[in-house]
Simulated scan of single mutants.
Amino acid sequence: MIANTKIDFQKIKTKLRVKSPWDRIIILCLSILITLPVFIILHQNLIELNWAFQLDRILLFLVVSATIYFLLYQLRTIIIICVVLYLLVLFYGTVIGNYGFNQVYQDYDSMIYTMTYNPYPQDIIVSKLLPFPNKSSILQAIEYQNPKVRNFAIMATSKHFKSVKGYSEYRTLIQCFAVFKEINSRWNYVNDPKDGDYIATASESLRYFSGDCDDHSILMAAAIRSIGGTPRLIHTKGHIYPEIFIGTSKDLEAINYLIKNKLFVKESFGKPLHYHIDERDQIWLNLDYTAKYPGGPFMSEEILGALTLN
């Protein structure tokens, strides 16, 4: 009985085994396909050494690829089963909305793009140095629960980037970028009266899309907050501008790719993203009225304080 079982098992292995040289070709292709998601996970969780020409990441990719090739070669007698299992795992992830074929492509595309076109951290906020000027008045002016403000934000999301498919986890940020595009394309800078600061409410600024930097920041923060984004205002010497919370360096990779390849292709062509990293290693992207795309150049670099809308 045992002998018959061994014979049957050998017959099965013989039927499943792919003849040379096709077994090596299939193993090579499969190892590359498996390397992609494994490399992406390692890339996102391992510290970057910042070697020239991304050599640390190239070396990591080669090591992962060689290791997977070696393991698959040891399983070459059942290579067909390995192929089927790999495809089934990705197919299952695609069907239930988890990590599947599309996510592998998006993550790899974002990673490669960011490795080629790195965003640019202007500086790091270590602490909030001074009290935020006119803090109570500004907070009252950020009317994110005002129906007019929310209706405006909803209109902007219907007008811009509605056709962008995929990237569901960044849907809120994409919609916030639609708000940014609508406001900055219409904003008209007008100075305050000579005898002091005039702080316009968000709903007031919606009428003419005019005012100074704090009026712009208030409207931007209110509209973004009204649709679920997390904005904050940065205070510099003589200037206030808004930023939006992006997340981690992994999120920055995806956002960098989206801005430069899907959302603001012409405006950001050949230009880096400018952002700040706070004391908790959280990334905030510049949304100043002078920026033509999210993450445009900072108008002022000297940071005196920050006001975050949680």
Rank of each mutant, 00 (worst) to 15 (best):
I2T: 10
I2L: 15
A3F: 14
I12F: 07
K13W: 10
T14H: 09
T14Y: 11
K15A: 14
V18Y: 02
K19E: 13
W22P: 06
D23F: 03
L30F: 08
S31P: 04
I32V: 12
I34T: 07
P37G: 00
V38A: 07
F39D: 13
L42T: 15
N45P: 07
E48L: 08
E48H: 10
N50Q: 10
W51F: 14
A52C: 08
F53R: 11
L59C: 13
F61L: 05
V63C: 11
V63H: 11
V64M: 06
T67E: 11
L72N: 11
Y73W: 15
Y73D: 12
Y73L: 08
Q74W: 09
L75M: 13
R76G: 01
R76I: 00
T77A: 08
C82K: 10
V83L: 13
V83T: 08
L88E: 03
V89W: 02
F91W: 04
G93W: 00
T94K: 05
I96E: 00
Q103T: 07
V104M: 07
Q106L: 10
Y108T: 15
Y108E: 07
I112E: 13
Y113S: 08
M115I: 13
P119D: 06
Y120F: 12
P121E: 14
Q122E: 14
K128V: 13
L129N: 06
L129I: 12
P131H: 02
F132V: 01
F132C: 03
F132D: 02
F132Q: 04
K135A: 12
K135Y: 10
I138A: 04
I138W: 04
A141R: 05
I142Y: 00
Q145I: 04
P147N: 00
A153R: 04
A153G: 03
A153V: 00
I154S: 08
S158H: 15
K162H: 09
V164Y: 03
K165N: 12
Y167K: 02
Y170C: 04
Y170M: 04
R171H: 08
F177E: 07
V179R: 03
K181T: 10
E182W: 14
N184T: 13
N184H: 07
N188K: 11
N191Y: 08
K194F: 06
G196W: 02
A200K: 15
S203R: 09
E204R: 15
L206I: 09
R207E: 15
Y208E: 14
S210E: 14
G211Y: 02
D214T: 04
D215T: 05
H216L: 05
I218P: 06
R225C: 10
S226C: 08
I227C: 10
R232Q: 14
L233R: 01
I234S: 07
H235G: 02
H239W: 03
I240M: 00
E243T: 12
D251I: 03
I255H: 02
N256M: 03
Y257I: 01
L258R: 05
K260I: 04
K262Q: 14
V265C: 00
V265E: 02
G270H: 01
G270Q: 00
G270Y: 01
H274A: 01
H274I: 00
Y275A: 04
Y275T: 05
I277Q: 07
D278Q: 04
D281N: 15
D281R: 12
Q282A: 06
L285W: 03
A291W: 13
K292R: 15
P294D: 05
A306K: 09
A306L: 09
A306W: 10
L309H: 05
